[in-house]
């Protein structure tokens, strides 16, 4: 008997907006899918594309990235830099064949607990429909195979 597929999702969020938004979702007793593992970072500008690759490498089926709305950054322009980086990285992932649906970006402020809960729910559902990221997990399996000549 096989277990139904539960997507594993990693969320990289900035501490000043989205993390506080997630906090608000919690204190407001909003329910959202338990599939997401949140990683808190100082700013979206701190989110290196390496983090996304690492999450996929460790078997994530989807990655979320979220931070302050443009103009709201605690460090004044970290999210503007991040936005450019994502734009380019997104095109690169697409060209390499990693479907853009697996990596999602959003702006969620500290006041948007509802938006946070809805975002997590829709993305979880989308990724559940896409199914496990099999092409990538095949690559991961190869890395675990014993050495052969």
């Amino acid at each position: 008997m096989s277990e139904p597929f539960e997507p594993k999702i990693i969320a990289f969020v900035c501490t000043y907006c989205t993390y506080a938004g997630a906090d608000l979702a919690g204190t407001s007793r909003l329910k959202y899918a338990p599939n997401v593992r949140i990683i808190r970072l100082p700013c979206t500008g701190r989110i290196s594309p390496m983090f996304i690759l690492k999450a996929l490498q460790k078997g994530a089926d989807g990655v979320l990235i979220s931070g302050c709305h443009p103009g709201d950054c605690h460090f004044t322009h970290g999210n503007y830099h991040a936005r450019r980086r994502w734009m380019v990285f997104r095109a690169l992932l697409d060209f390499i064949g990693i479907p853009p649906e697996r990596v999602k970006y959003s702006w969620i402020s500290a006041a948007e607990g509802v938006k946070f809960a809805e975002f997590i729910n829709t993305v979880t559902e989308d990724i559940r429909k896409l199914g496990p990221f099999e092409q990538y997990s095949q690559l991961i399996e190869q890395t675990q195979a014993s050495a052969s000549l």
Binding site: P70, G71, H77, Y80, H81, R83, R84, R85, W86, M87, V88, R90, P100, K104, Y105, S106, W107, F119
Partner: peptide
């Protein structure tokens, strides 16, 4: 350098 600079009106159609 393009990734070390930004414009406030950069495209962000992909951000939810």
């Amino acid at each position: 350098p393009v990734l070390a600079s930004f414009k406030k009106d950069d495209s962000e159609t992909f951000i939810l």
